[in-house]
Protein backbone atom coordinates (compact mmCIF):
# COMPACT_ATOMS: atom_id res chain seq x y z
CA UNK A 1 0.00 0.00 0.00
CA UNK A 2 1.71 3.19 -1.16
CA UNK A 3 0.80 6.61 0.16
CA UNK A 4 1.65 10.00 -1.34
CA UNK A 5 3.13 12.84 0.67
CA UNK A 6 -0.15 14.72 0.11
CA UNK A 7 -2.06 11.82 1.70
CA UNK A 8 -0.08 12.27 4.93
CA UNK A 9 -0.67 16.03 4.87
CA UNK A 10 -4.40 15.47 4.33
CA UNK A 11 -4.53 12.93 7.19
CA UNK A 12 -2.88 15.50 9.46
CA UNK A 13 -5.58 18.03 8.54
CA UNK A 14 -8.38 15.50 9.18
CA UNK A 15 -6.85 14.34 12.49
CA UNK A 16 -5.99 17.91 13.60
CA UNK A 17 -2.32 17.10 14.00
CA UNK A 18 0.35 19.59 12.88
CA UNK A 19 2.83 17.57 10.84
CA UNK A 20 6.38 18.82 10.35
CA UNK A 21 7.30 18.82 6.63
CA UNK A 22 10.64 17.19 7.46
CA UNK A 23 9.01 14.16 9.06
CA UNK A 24 6.45 13.38 6.34
CA UNK A 25 8.59 10.76 4.55
CA UNK A 26 9.30 8.94 7.79
CA UNK A 27 5.64 8.99 8.87
CA UNK A 28 4.63 7.88 5.36
CA UNK A 29 6.91 4.84 5.34
CA UNK A 30 5.80 3.69 8.82
CA UNK A 31 2.14 4.13 7.96
CA UNK A 32 2.71 2.11 4.78
CA UNK A 33 4.20 -0.72 6.82
CA UNK A 34 1.18 -0.77 9.13
CA UNK A 35 -1.24 -0.63 6.18
CA UNK A 36 0.60 -3.57 4.60
CA UNK A 37 -0.07 -5.55 7.80
CA UNK A 38 -3.69 -4.43 7.86
CA UNK A 39 -4.17 -5.37 4.20
CA UNK A 40 -3.90 -9.05 5.18
CA UNK A 41 -7.59 -8.62 6.04
CA UNK A 42 -8.38 -8.72 2.35
CA UNK A 43 -7.50 -12.44 2.30
CA UNK A 44 -10.50 -13.23 4.54
CA UNK A 45 -13.70 -14.57 3.03
CA UNK A 46 -16.35 -12.41 4.68
CA UNK A 47 -19.27 -12.99 2.32
CA UNK A 48 -22.50 -13.07 4.37
CA UNK A 49 -20.61 -12.28 7.60
CA UNK A 50 -22.13 -9.49 9.67
CA UNK A 51 -19.76 -6.87 11.01
CA UNK A 52 -19.20 -7.11 14.77
CA UNK A 53 -18.94 -3.65 16.27
CA UNK A 54 -18.92 -4.65 19.88
CA UNK A 55 -18.71 -7.68 22.21
CA UNK A 56 -22.20 -6.82 23.49
CA UNK A 57 -23.73 -6.57 20.05
CA UNK A 58 -27.25 -5.20 20.25
CA UNK A 59 -27.18 -4.63 23.99
CA UNK A 60 -27.56 -1.17 25.39
CA UNK A 61 -28.26 -0.46 29.05
CA UNK A 62 -30.93 2.18 29.42
CA UNK A 63 -32.01 4.21 32.44
CA UNK A 64 -34.79 6.61 33.36
CA UNK A 65 -34.38 10.02 31.74
CA UNK A 66 -33.69 11.80 35.00
CA UNK A 67 -30.92 14.12 36.15
CA UNK A 68 -28.67 12.09 38.44
CA UNK A 69 -25.47 14.14 38.40
CA UNK A 70 -24.75 17.48 40.01
CA UNK A 71 -23.50 20.32 37.87
CA UNK A 72 -19.72 20.39 38.47
CA UNK A 73 -19.00 23.11 35.92
CA UNK A 74 -16.64 25.05 38.21
CA UNK A 75 -14.60 21.96 39.12
CA UNK A 76 -14.26 20.96 35.48
CA UNK A 77 -13.48 24.46 34.19
CA UNK A 78 -10.64 24.76 36.70
CA UNK A 79 -8.80 22.33 34.41
CA UNK A 80 -8.84 24.77 31.50
CA UNK A 81 -6.06 27.26 30.81
CA UNK A 82 -8.48 30.02 29.85
CA UNK A 83 -12.01 30.53 31.21
CA UNK A 84 -14.05 33.71 31.61
CA UNK A 85 -17.55 34.05 33.10
CA UNK A 86 -18.09 30.30 32.84
CA UNK A 87 -17.05 30.24 29.16
CA UNK A 88 -13.96 28.63 27.59
CA UNK A 89 -11.84 31.20 25.76
CA UNK A 90 -10.40 30.35 22.35
CA UNK A 91 -8.46 32.45 19.79
CA UNK A 92 -10.49 34.74 17.58
CA UNK A 93 -12.43 32.69 15.02
CA UNK A 94 -14.04 35.45 12.91
CA UNK A 95 -11.75 38.21 11.61
Amino acid sequence: MKLKRDDVTQLGILAKLAIDENTINDIKSRLENVLELVNQLQTADTVNIDPMAHPQQGFQALREDQITEENDQKAFQKLSKDVQNGLYLVPKVIE
Binding site: V38, L41, Q42, A44, T46, I49, D50, P51, M52, A53
Partner: peptide
Protein backbone atom coordinates in the same frame (compact mmCIF):
# COMPACT_ATOMS: atom_id res chain seq x y z
CA UNK B 1 -12.33 -1.79 2.78
CA UNK B 2 -10.80 -1.44 6.22
CA UNK B 3 -13.20 -0.74 9.06
CA UNK B 4 -16.17 -2.82 7.90
CA UNK B 5 -13.87 -5.64 6.78
CA UNK B 6 -12.08 -5.64 10.17
CA UNK B 7 -15.43 -5.85 11.95
CA UNK B 8 -16.45 -8.81 9.78
CA UNK B 9 -13.16 -10.54 10.59
CA UNK B 10 -13.80 -9.75 14.27
CA UNK B 11 -17.04 -11.71 13.94
CA UNK B 12 -15.15 -14.65 12.37
Amino acid sequence: AYYRKAQQVRNL
